[in-house]
Every structure is written in structure tokens, then in C-alpha cells.
Computed example of a mutant assay.
Amino acid sequence: MKRWVGLLASFATSIAMNGAFAQGSLRIGMVAGFSGPVAGIVRESAEGARLYFDAVNAQGGIRGQNIEFLTQDDKYNPATAAAAAKSLASQGVLALMLSRGTGPTEAMLPVLKENKLPLIAPATGAISLREPAQPWVYHLRASYQKEAERAVKHLVGIGVKRITIVQVNDPFGNDAGKGAIKGLDDLKLRALSNLRFDRNKPDLAPTMQAIARANIEAVVLIGPAYAVVEGVNALRAAGSTAHVATLSNNASSEFVKALGDNARGIVVTQLFPYERSTANPLVREALGLAKAAGHGELTPAQLEGFAAAKLVVETLKRAAGKDINRDAFAKALEGSRIDLGGLQVNYTEKEHNGLEFTDVSIVGPDGKFWR
């Protein structure tokens, strides 16, 4: 009897690791900070993913199977992220998607390896997750360094020369800061200063007062939303009208609301086409489905979630065999070239970087991201 119990347990574990638990549905998981400091942008990206999954299910799903979108809150905590990823793996998800942040994503790597579980479109641009390529991680967005470089080149392009970099003193800030420095180097310029602050206690008022006194023309402000909001408000309170540029981790409506009147004119890098441009096929499709669902507009984070969901669906369609499992899903990604609607995503065995698209937006007087 004990032998049969052991065999059944082993069989159940094998099924879970191959992602074949769900009968009649294809399970896709998302582990991210639905509460905590990144909750606003996480919820928006999940809304965008669900918009596309719901549309696919309404058309009959994939080979008659609906997509079941399972989410768990990691509270932006690496240990919680690893536990949540393990939980979803045991529930037979075929893949995870849209993790948020470098720390939580890195904490999931052992779980991905152990369960042979692909992670699609993590919302992190960390070089540590790209070089060398992580075998189970498939990026969609460009790196932090690429977008920081784009922000700097935009500022110089509008005539700004006196630039300082203010970055959170952690792996994210250090990574993105290298991109900002490279952007200046390419243009034969140097930052007037490169300042760092603590993630947990930014205390940016003294820094911003010093920047205002130095008559700095622009600040590249790299950090989590709450710190950037504190920094911008302190800069304006100090009387400075310097341009402020930040990265796409702050491209959410919640970030704009938190800034209030100080949001206008803030430059925010973007990693997907303009969410209101119907000239782009991906955006046109997303806007059409959003309106059909009773939503008037999209945010950048919703568009990222929509694009990630479309990548998942296109991969499911390509997965070989009658039964779709994790192995088939991963094999369908390797060496693939997938058109998401004006955006070509290509993966090879040695490179999982996805897109290199970068752009900038400016928060307009209406609180929307203008391009």
C-alpha cells in the first residue's frame, strides 16, 4: 500500500512539473506586488493581460481550451515571490509572466529551473537577468540601461547640458545609472554629479535643495515611484524648474496622481508604442478590445500586459502536440520570431532579450503621457 501511495505522489509531482494539471484549461500564472510600493503599476499590467486573455477565451480559447490566469501577490518581497512561484508551479501553470522588480524575479530563478517553468516578460530591465541569458526567462521589454540612455539623449536633444543623476543606491539604480552615464559619454558630456539615496529612507529634500542652488538644468531621477515623487516635490519646493526624467517603472496613472500639480512636464521613458496611437497594429487591437470591454483608454502598463499576454497566446498556438505542456511551450519560444502587431520578438538559445524599443513621453496638463 505504501508503495502505491509513493508512486501516486511521484506521478502527481511529475504532472505538476510538466504543467498538465488543468483539464480543459491552460493555466498561466503571475507573481507580482499586487500590494505594496508597486501595486498600482502591477494591477494595470495584470488588467492589460486579462483584457487579451478574456478576448481569446471569448473566441473559443486555444484548441478549445480556455486560458486560466492565476495571480499571486508577492508584496514586492523576494522571499514571498519565490514561495508564490513555487505554489503556482504546483498548481500546474504552463508559464509565469509579468513579475515585477529585479529582486523578486531573481528569487524565482531556482523555482523556474527546478520546475522547468518559463517566465515571460518580467517587468525588469536588469542586466543580471540578461547577461548571460537565463534559460527559463524570456524578456519582452528593453533593459534599464537602454531606457536610461534614451532619457539622457532626449534631454540633450532639447538643448540641456547641465545634467545630474540621482539614483537609488541598489542594484536597480546602479544598473540604470550606468545607462545614463553611457548616454552622456556617447554625446561627449559628463554628469555634473552622480548622487545616491537610500531606498527605504530617501530623504531627498537636502539633495534637491543643493541641486536647485547649483542651477542644474535637468535631473535624471532613478528610483521607485514613492522616492521619485518625494524628489520631484522637494525639487519644486526648492524653487527649481529643472527638467526631470525618470524611467518606465513609474509609467502609471497612480504615479501621476501622487505627483499632483508637479506631474506636468515630467519625462518618463516608455518601452512600448504610444498607447493612444491607432497607427500601430498592437495598440489599435488593444484599444479596440478595451473599448469593447467598456474601457475608454489604456495606460502604458496595461499595454505592456496586453503585449505579454499576446506573446503567451502566440506561443501556446505554436506549441507542438495534442497536449500543451511546459516543455512544448519552451520549445515553441526557442528560435521563434513572433509578430505582436508591428513589434517583432525574436529569441535564440543564447539571447532572450526580446525588444530593444525605447521612447520617451511627457506628462501633459491632463495627466496623460504625451508623445
Rank of each mutant, 00 (worst) to 15 (best):
R236A: 02
T278P: 05
M208P: 03
D175H: 05
R236L: 07
L184N: 00
G296T: 12
R213D: 14
T241F: 03
L289G: 00
G288C: 04
R199E: 12
G288V: 02
R284H: 01
A263I: 01
R284N: 14
V256N: 08
V283H: 08
S252K: 02
E217F: 03
N280D: 14
Y274M: 00
N280V: 10
D186E: 15
E217L: 04
D198E: 10
G265N: 10
G265D: 02
Q302N: 12
A212H: 00
P206T: 04
Q302S: 06
E304D: 12
L287D: 03
R199T: 15
L298Y: 07
G296M: 12
L282S: 11
P202L: 11
P281A: 10
L192G: 05
L195K: 15
P281I: 09
L259M: 10
E275I: 08
I216F: 03
L189T: 00
L184M: 15
G260K: 06
L195G: 05
D186K: 12
R236T: 03
L187Q: 14
G177C: 13
V229W: 13
G173L: 03
L195T: 15
I216D: 02
L259C: 07
I222P: 06
T269S: 15
A205R: 10
A308N: 01
L204S: 09
N215F: 12
F197E: 08
